[in-house]
Amino acid sequence: MQKLVQQRTKMLETLPEIIGPVSVKVSDVHTGAWRYRRPVIRDEDCVRCGICATYCPCGVIEKTDDGMVIDYTYCKGCGICTVECPKKAIDFIEESNFRKEAE
């Protein structure tokens, strides 16, 4: 996502001036702030099948060498991944718990 934002920002500098209602910049709303519950993958139970990523509407789950990673900057906390996970390896935890932790 950040690559896209950067690429477009760079592109914007090189493009000729456009006349009319034309957009180039990428929408980058940090929708993670909407979340009141946070999906947390229990790595030990995760089989990396990728179904959570397939069904995540926001595309914030990525398969990496270190397992499935959720981008909490954008995760809205809809909970679809927690329901669809065939191993039930994703916990859905109240955001307030993390805030307490941070404090």
Binding site: K3, V26, T31, W34, C56, P57, T73, K76, C78
Partner: peptide, 26 residues
């Protein structure tokens, strides 16, 4: 050229929006 997302992840669709999922899969 690094592989880029073809749809932003930070958009104001509702939580659990199926339309966004369809667009992403498309």
């Amino acid at each position: 050229m690094p592989e880029l997302d073809l749809l932003s992840k930070g958009m104001t669709t509702c939580q659990g929006c199926p339309m966004e999922l369809i667009a992403r899969a498309a």
